[in-house]
Write a protein that binds this DNA or RNA. Structure first.
Length: 942
RNA sequence: GGGCUUGUAGCUCAGUUGGUUAGAGCGCACGACUGAUAAUCGUGAGGUCGAAAGUUCAACUCUUUCCAGGCCCA
């Protein structure tokens, strides 16, 4: 007789194999068909608000793992909040203006660019950006991210472009703008400013000169130097910048020496004396007269070698010992370091060079002469004056920036730029630093980082000499004497209105009079002719006002956004630009909380590199392994640090996924004949082991909810693995198997277990839906006989901690019993090695218990008590158990003190139905080869 | 070079205010089962906590230095 058909074996349509690449798109279609996102919004329309704001990725290229990490994290948050009843949504956006797109397009149109109008170019850039947005949008959608993808924002939307201008107007109205000078890379052959990305470093032969600057300082108490001329020695490769020299920088930490050499007194860093002598070919011995710290001469002066001007001596950490003299020629108009330290000391950003690389009136002696000529002329001049320390004609080969277009060397040259002042009347830095304290920064160190950056940041240069961006809405009086700028909120708003209608092309479509009115007169000189500003705004300003352009449609100016969630690089970028603009115009931060994640690295911890091909591109990954794996990967990693991505890591994630999936599958497969409404067993009526599992599940809920609340998603992954593998699959499931299969379908013990399994499947589907959205939905849809099933798991509420299911004593006791089970297992393993037994049920066990542990908790009689098999045997999954009071030498000691165990092959015969060994097997003629329990069950169910 | 930050078993992570033989899951090795089966179960071997020095009765946990990464600047 084959008893197999009489068993309640698992049955489910929930497949073991997920086949994610094929099934995910179907799920996406399903969600789309039922309009799940809108339903979520509708469901919570009366819920508490949680306002989230998506930071716009740059609209260029395929998405990479950084995007994936970011978007999936946001999706976790949005889904969790939605399932918790919050009224929350996400409007995805893109950053569209800016250099990368401009360069991409320029590469395609090449020389045609010169013949094209600004409007035509803008149209091209806009087209390109649109294709990029479409491309990225598709890829984001594939991630299973919930959003209304028809409602997104782009910084190039006309409405958005207009709003940028309005925010600029507000800043202008606050007086938080000024025009100043700043050095930029400049190609005097193309007559244009260049961005960092347009510069190529190539070998170049430069001058190399050591120049003496006469010091105006008496070293007190140094007799030998009294009344002597002392010179600071600087080294430079650009003699043409000497006319713009405004100072000399010393490192405050270095030691400097006054040396006597060839009857001259020279100053340089002590550690560089020898190398300078060698490089400048200075022979003869020198004598160190005096040593001093770099700080000594701070704020003293030298005389410029050939211009009637003082050069200020300053202290700066940028001075190194790598080359030169340790005394650094500083020309704020021609170098970034120079500019920064010059700003600090209040130096003029002096630039006597025009757009074509020729000296201007500001260096009359060489007016109209090209700086390349100037190099030579100045070298000779200084040599003749005797301020050149080396012999003229010395040259050096080194890497030097060149223009990527024309290949000529570029220069650093101060040009007029627009700035937002960091100090000044608005005291922006002070106020921002205070406001930073009112924001919650996660992780904590994030606050220190933004704080440090704000504390030390220079004025924000918001102008760019480019085309693809928001024109700075300013006009200039064309009277050359006047040049007065028109910075008027009303007029700026007119510009904004025109952008709202036509986009930024309006700036080029319209004459100044269109905005100013025909009769507008210069407030300064009464002039009537004006020209438009040519510069555009820094794109960080674009995205920096997104809270205004995107969110204030839905909320008031005073309402803050609950959360920004971006990579840690945004401390310099979006977090900061948003904070600063909002502080000026609204006097508060735009956000309440800022959550930061790290970067995605390759398996070796180094950055992902397209060149090295040290990773699988996302598209291919998704098409072969599925998004769900990526979602679980995001959850598994502690995103607050850098995360790693590699095949071994992914393989581990897949294992975890399979474990989870199979665990859920097992639960589902034993529910085919279960209906929670009809067959539920109340917690109080459950068997202790089932109660224990309910407790475990309950505490799992609690910890998972806490993890969501704290944005610690990797803890969810950790808890999930622990629960599935350790508590369910290998422990609870293996024990309940016997009851599930063997008992009569409707037996109370079995129904109790099914109640637990139902709770597992149901709770897990809901709790993990924000993370494993695809699989959670699949589980939910696969729960059999569920009345009032919602259309989607996402329309369910998250389960919460049930305070009445909280039995610490039970949990502790079970922990001890599991330890005993482990010891028994070890003994059984020995028998298995000896081939005495195969499966556990082939064995019987005798146990001498320690005084403090017993199995009483399993033996409480009640409706769940199993009459046929000892509860302990069931628990240990052996055929027979005997608890003894004394143990002879045949017992083995275990690692638990006082616990002694004896294992042996089970007595009697194996029941064909339940595989348990029993001395009374085959006693019932109606059901041959069955144990008494099975015979009885068979009688009941036939 | 500077600011911030990371470094616990092969992988991903736990590790409470410094306190007994440092944990989990996966992987690996070996084995069992064949009624979760391209599954499941068991046993076992793997870290001295990036390195060194210091504080302390006691440090993965505090301090300093160094090494190797990362983000942002320069």
């Amino acid at each position: 007789m084959d008893y197999k058909d009489s068993l309640n074996l698992p049955k489910t349509g929930f497949k073991m194999k997920a086949n994610l690449p094929v099934n995910e798109p179907k799920k996406l279609q399903f969600w789309n068909d039922i309009n799940i996102y809108q339903k979520l919004i509708d469901k919570n329309k009366n819920g508490e608000k949680f306002i989230f704001h998506d930071g716009p990725p740059y609209a260029n290229g395929d998405i990479h793992y950084g995007h994936i990490l970011n978007k999936i994290l946001k999706d976790f948050v949005i889904k969790y909040k939605n399932m918790s009843g919050y009224q929350t949504k996400i409007i995805n956006g893109w950053d569209c203006h800016g250099l990368p797109i401009e360069l991409q397009v320029d590469k395609k149109i090449k020389k045609k660019k010169r013949e094209m109008t600004k409007q035509q170019l803008i149209e091209k850039y806009r087209e390109y950006a649109t294709t990029q947005v479409t491309n990225q949008k598709e890829q984001f959608q594939r991630l299973g991210v919930f959003s209304d993808w028809d409602i997104t924002y782009k910084t190039m939307d006309f409405q958005y472009e207009a709003q940028i201008v309005r925010e600029f107007g507000k800043i202008a109205a606050k007086g938080a703008l000024y025009k100043g000078k700043k050095p930029v890379h400049w190609c005097s052959s193309c007559v244009t400013a260049l961005a960092e990305a347009e510069i190529e470093h190539e070998e170049h032969t430069s001058f190399s000169i050591y120049v003496k600057f006469k010091l105006n300082y008496e070293f007190e108490g140094v007799e030998e130097l009294k009344g002597k001329d002392i010179f600071m020695v600087i080294w430079t490769t650009t003699p043409w910048t000497i006319p713009a020299n405004m100072g000399i920088s010393l490192n405050p930490k270095f030691e400097y020496s006054v040396i006597e050499l060839n009857n001259e007194y020279l100053i340089m860093a002590s550690d560089l004396i020898e190398s300078v002598k060698a490089d400048a070919e200075l022979e003869n011995k020198h004598k160190v007269i005096h040593k001093f710290k770099g700080t000594l001469l701070d704020n003293e002066t030298c005389d410029h070698p050939f211009i009637d001007r003082k050069s200020l001596i300053m202290n700066g950490d940028h001075v190194t010992l790598e080359a030169g003299t340790g005394c650094v020629h500083t020309a704020p108009g021609h170098g970034m370091d120079d500019y920064i330290i010059g700003n600090k000391y209040g130096l003029d950003v002096f630039n006597p060079v025009d757009n074509y690389g020729k000296y201007t009136d500001d260096f009359p002696e060489m007016k109209g002469i090209k700086i390349s000529e100037g190099n030579k002329l100045l070298e000779t001049k200084m040599h003749e004056m005797g301020v050149l320390l080396n012999k003229p004609g010395k040259r050096i080969r080194h890497a030097y920036p060149h223009c990527w277009r024309c290949g000529n060397p570029v220069i650093f040259r101060a040009t007029k730029q627009w700035f937002i002042p960091m100090n000044g009347e608005l005291k922006l830095i002070d106020r921002t630093l205070k406001e930073i304290k009112n924001v919650e920064w996660i992780p904590k160190w994030s606050e220190g980082r933004i704080n440090g950056m704000i504390e030390n940041r220079p004025d924000w240069c918001i102008s760019r000499q480019r085309t693809w961006g928001i024109p700075i809405p300013v006009f200039y009086c064309e009277n050359e004497e006047c040049e007065q700028e028109v910075l008027d909120t009303e007029i700026i708003n007119k510009v904004a209105d025109s952008f709202e209608r036509e986009g930024i092309a309006a700036w080029y479509n319209n004459e100044p009079s269109f905005y100013l009115g025909e009769n507008y007169k210069c407030k300064k000189c009464g002039g009537t002719h004006f020209r438009k500003e040519k510069d555009i705004l820094d794109v960080w300003f674009d995205s920096g006002v997104s809270y205004a352009a995107v969110m204030e449609n839905m909320q008031s100016e005073t309402e803050k956004i609950d959360l920004y969630l971006e990579g840690s690089d945004q401390h310099r970028g979006w977090f900061q630009s948003s904070l600063l603009t909002s502080m000026i115009t609204r006097d508060h931060a735009p956000y309440k909380k800022v959550l930061t994640h790290g970067f995605v690295m390759a398996a070796d911890g180094k950055k992902l590199s397209k060149k090295l091909k040290n990773y699988d591109p996302p598209k291919r990954f998704i098409n072969t392994q599925g998004v769900e794996i990526l979602r679980l990967w995001v959850a598994a990693e502690d995103y607050r640090n850098d995360t790693r991505f590699g095949q071994e890591i992914i393989n581990r994630i897949k294992e975890a996924y399979r474990k989870f999936r199979n665990t859920m599958r097992y639960a589902l497969s034993n529910l085919s004949d279960f209906n929670i409404t009809k067959n539920e067993v109340k917690y109080d009526d459950m068997h202790p082991l089932d109660k224990w599992t309910m407790n475990k599940l309950n505490s799992f809920k609690k910890r998972v909810i806490e993890a969501y609340e704290n944005y610690e998603f990797h803890m969810i992954y950790y808890y999930m693995n622990e629960l599935c593998a350790a508590d369910l699959s290998s422990f609870y499931f293996s024990i309940i198997k016997d009851t599930l299969y063997v008992e009569a379908p409707d037996s109370p013990r079995r129904r109790g277990i099914q109640t637990v399994l139902f709770n597992i499947a149901d709770s897990m589907a809901k709790l993990l839906a924000p993370v494993m959205s695809f699989t959670a939905e699949e589980i939910y849809q696969s729960i059999p006989n569920l009345e009032n099933k919602k259309e989607s798991v996402f329309l369910e509420e998250l389960p919460t901690f049930n305070t009445s299911i909280h039995d610490n004593e039970l949990l502790d006791t079970m922990t001890n019993l599991r330890k005993i089970k482990e010891e028994v297992q070890k003994e059984l393993e020995k028998m298995r090695k000896e081939k005495t037994i195969g499966q556990n049920l082939d064995a019987r066990v005798e146990i001498l218990l320690p005084k403090n542990i017993n199995f009483d908790i399993l033996l409480q009689k009640g409706p769940q008590f199993n009459e046929y098999l000892s509860e302990i045997a069931l628990f240990l999954i052996v055929s027979d158990v005997k608890i003894v009071n004394t143990a002879d030498s045949s017992f083995v000691n275990t690692e638990i003190e006082g616990l002694k165990i004896k294992v042996a092959k089970a007595e009697g015969e194996k029941c064909e139905r339940c595989w348990t060994w029993h001395v009374d097997t085959n006693k019932d003629a109606n059901f041959p080869n069955t144990c008494p329990r099975c015979a009885s069950v068979m009688k009941e169910i036939s």
